[in-house]
């Protein structure tokens, strides 16, 4: 395929990149969740500086794909939303890192 298109094989991997992960706001969310056991909605909003609506929308997409798990509960009387990365989500982030790392290495050459 690389011969026909003339695209460097490393860069060709970019076509395979997971677009769900690749979107900047979702990538930020996933990178934060990658480093924590769990985070609540407020923490994600604080660290990503996304608006509540924007964050909520991206979390819905990630939850639909099975990348994150959203647990709604109560802390006493106050509603609480905890988010954690699933194993599927963790593997997706790892795969994304590998793809980008290979593509960027080829660029450097």
């Amino acid at each position: 395929m690389a011969d026909k298109t003339g695209i460097d094989p490393g860069l060709g991997n970019l076509a395979e990149v997971d677009r769900l992960v690749h979107e900047p706001a979702r990538l930020m969310i996933l990178m934060v969740l990658y480093t924590v056991e769990f985070a609540d909605f407020t923490f994600l909003a604080t660290i990503t500086k996304l608006t509540d609506g924007n964050l909520s929308s991206h979390l819905s997409k990630l939850e639909s794909a099975g990348y994150v798990e959203i647990e709604k509960g109560y802390d006493g009387k106050k509603p609480r939303t905890r988010i954690r990365l699933t194993e599927v989500g963790r593997k997706a982030v790892d795969a994304y890192r590998t793809t980008m790392s290979q593509a960027l290495q080829h660029l450097a050459d």
Binding site: V32, T35, T42, F43, A45
Partner: peptide
């Protein structure tokens, strides 16, 4: 907690 939220760093 109410201001910045809660997170548990990964162990």
């Amino acid at each position: 907690g109410p201001r910045i939220g809660v997170a548990a760093p990964r162990r």
